[in-house]
Amino acid sequence: MLNSIRELYRYRALIVVLVSRDLKARYRGSVLGFMWSMLNPFLMMLVYWLVFSIYLRNGMEHYHVYLFCGLLPWLWFSASLLEGCGSIISGANLVKKVMFPAEILPLVVVISNLIHFCFGLPILAGFLIIYRIIPGLNILVFPLIIVIQFVFTFGLVLALSALSVHLRDIQQILTNIVTLWFFMSPIVYNLSDLNLASKPAILSIIMNLNPMKHIMESYHRIFLQNMTDRGSEIFNLPIPWLGLGAVLGFSVILLMVSWRVFNRLKTGFSEEI
C-alpha cells in the first residue's frame, strides 16, 4: 500500500487537475455555480427539518443545527460512495486510452466531495454564530475526524469502484444501501432518544458496529459541544475515543484490503469497460 501511495503522490498534479476539473464541471452552466455546494446541504436540511421537526415534532431546541451538523459530513460520505462506485466505468475513456494509476479516479471523487464538504462549513459556522454556540476544546479533533472519515470512505470506494467494473449490479443496489445506512446512523435523530438500552441488545450492537455512528457522534460533540437543549448541554461529552480508534483501525485495514483487491482487478479494467 505504501508503494501505491507513493505512486499516487507522483501523480499529485494530475489529481489536483482532475479534482479542479470535477469542481469546475459540476456547476458549469448553472446560474448559482459554486453556491450550490452550500445550498444543497442547506436545502436538504430544510427537508428533514420540515419532516422531523414540524410534522414529527422532534423536541430538540436547535434541531436544524443538529441536522446540518450531521448532514454535511454524511453528504460527503454518501456522494463519494455513489459517484465513486462508478468512477472507473465512467472514466472508461481515460482508463482505456491513457496510462495512469486508475485508483486516481475514485480518489478524485472522494477529494472533490471533501471540498464540497468544506464549502458547506461556512454555513455551519453561520449557524453556530447565530445561535451563539461556541465550540469547545473538542474542535481540536476536527482534522483527525476528517482523516478518519477520509480513510474509511476511500477504502470503501476503492473496492466498490473496482468490483462494480465486473459486477455492475453493485451500482444499482448501492443507492438503497446508502439510504438504509443513512437512517441507521444518528443524523436525523439523537442516539440518546432511541432508548437503545431498553431494546434488544442486538440493536445496540449493530449500531456500535457502524463506523458512521462513531464518526457522526464525533461531529456532534466537536461542533455542538456547547449547544444547549432545554438547559442541558447534551453534546458536552468527551470524544468517543474507543469507538473512533476502532473505526480508524478498521478503516486502515479496509483500505489495505481494498487496495489489494483493486490492484488485482485493475489489469482487467481496460478490457472490461
Binding site: R21, K24, A25, R28, K96, V98
Partner: peptide
C-alpha cells in the same frame, strides 16, 4: 482528446 471534459 481522451479526458477532455465537455463542460469546461
Amino acid at each position: 482528446g481522451a479526458g477532455f471534459h465537455p463542460e469546461i
